[in-house]
């Protein structure tokens, strides 16, 4: 995935910071990766390379760790992250159908992020509210229960609306600042 503007600098400074607080022992590797991921939302290849240099561990080892553990993601999270529960109870109540519906609507596969980084889709194991199965976790903190394919459409619609609204406010503030800047210019 292409790095965004300014992302390279952010990655470098994050790794730098994490390394500074690390004992640089092997046992600090997994916690360090966790810290990088909690800052950046994922583990970009560049971050793994820089960590390898800093900790003096072959980069391939770090890649091995990052791919071994499910927690680590190599794709950036989307602005709207969806995690579909594939725990036993959710599976039995049709979690797979829910996952497929999201794949269809987002036009990505499970584990991927859309190229515009708007959506990402993952599967998780039991989130502990099996009574509400099938369950979906949105943006890490919001849990939706009874997510049937129709509800998937509803959730996607909510994302689209939220995104549109945000764009509009952005535009407005932009115009606002332009206006004030222009007015400020006039007053001078």
């Amino acid at each position: 995935m292409q790095l965004l503007e300014g992302e390279r600098e952010l990655i470098l400074s994050t790794v730098e910071e994490v390394l500074q607080n690390s004992s640089r022992n092997r046992e600090d590797l997994i916690p360090s990766l966790q810290r990088v991921q909690s800052k950046l939302g994922y583990l970009p290849a560049l971050a793994m390379e820089k960590l390898a240099e800093g900790l003096d561990i072959p980069a391939v080892d770090i890649y091995g760790i990052a791919t071994f553990y499910n927690q680590f993601r190599l794709n950036p999270p989307g602005k709207y992250q969806v995690k579909v529960c594939m725990g036993t109870a959710c599976y039995m109540k049709g979690g797979e159908i829910t996952l497929e519906s999201f794949e269809r609507r987002m036009e990505i596969e499970e584990g991927e992020t859309s190229p515009d980084r708007l959506y990402s889709l993952e599967r998780v194991a039991c989130v502990g509210c099996c009574t509400l199965a099938p369950v979906v976790v949105v943006n890490d903190d919001h849990i939706e229960g009874y997510v049937t394919p129709t509800r998937v459409d509803g959730i996607m619609l909510e994302f689209e609306e939220a995104d549109q609204k945000e764009e509009e406010t952005e535009k407005e503030t932009e115009e606002e600042t332009k206006k004030t800047a222009a007015e400020g210019g006039k007053n001078k």
Binding site: G94, I97, S101, P149
Partner: peptide, 10 residues
């Protein structure tokens, strides 16, 4: 049909 069961429930 993707066999999602929606219509049966609906």
């Amino acid at each position: 049909c993707v066999k999602c069961d929606n219509c049966r429930k609906a």
